[in-house]
Amino acid sequence: MLNIKDLYASVEGSQILKGLNLSVKAGEVHAIMGPNGSGKSTLSKIIAGHPQYTVDSGTVEYEAAGRVVNLCELEPEARAKEGVFLAFQYPVEIPGVPMSLFLRSAYNAVCRHHGVEEMDPLDFDQFLHEKMKVLEMDDKYIDRAVNVDFSGGEKKRNEILQMAVLNPRLAVLDETDSGLDIDSMKIVAGGVNKLRTKKNAMIVITHYQRLLNYIQPDVVHVLHAGRIIKSGGKELALEVEGKGYDWLIK
């Protein structure tokens, strides 16, 4: 589904990714770990198409509906419509815009793209409530402005709710566990696991092995200095947890 080949990418003039290769197939969950500054968030921003991050060379091939596109050539919204989703590490506040309107606008934008009928506010409300139940979010939430006055945990839960609504083919979770207490993490992980199917794939970026107890990865990668230096099964995460990164970097 995703094939990143020899990717070099920069932000504000400094090169962060230096020859990254990554291949993700449908049905797989890949975890990416790595020390601060290794390029984890840059990778997520490049996949989603953040305008401040530039691809210097290499390609990000993405296979959708039987054809392969280079994601780097698409606008961020076109990527979203093709089923690419980024759960933000720092979700952004949009004052005055209620969650219900935001989610319905996003959902219907994707519907329009696929030529599917848009959902009216009433039907959407019902649809949304079902998704909210999974993440144990209360009703008042839909009238609140997007991320405004949300606690850290609410913001992260909100990202997964958006994922549940948009039902992406490729989801990148950027440090979704940071700032979550153990109970919230279980709920969020439960929500994520319900969205796992044979047809979609996930890239889970995290500092800690802890999250991977709840979201079991098929492959674990260690990122350092802009490249993947080690890949393995979920036992690699445990090893990193015990020994740190130093033994890998040498």
Binding site: H50, P51, P76, K81, V92
Partner: peptide
């Protein structure tokens, strides 16, 4: 803000209009 909304499928114009 604009990028956040774009990454959910809204065009730049739709994003600005929503904000």
């Amino acid at each position: 803000q604009v990028f956040y909304l774009q990454s959910r499928g809204l065009t730049k114009e739709e994003a600005i209009s929503l904000v």
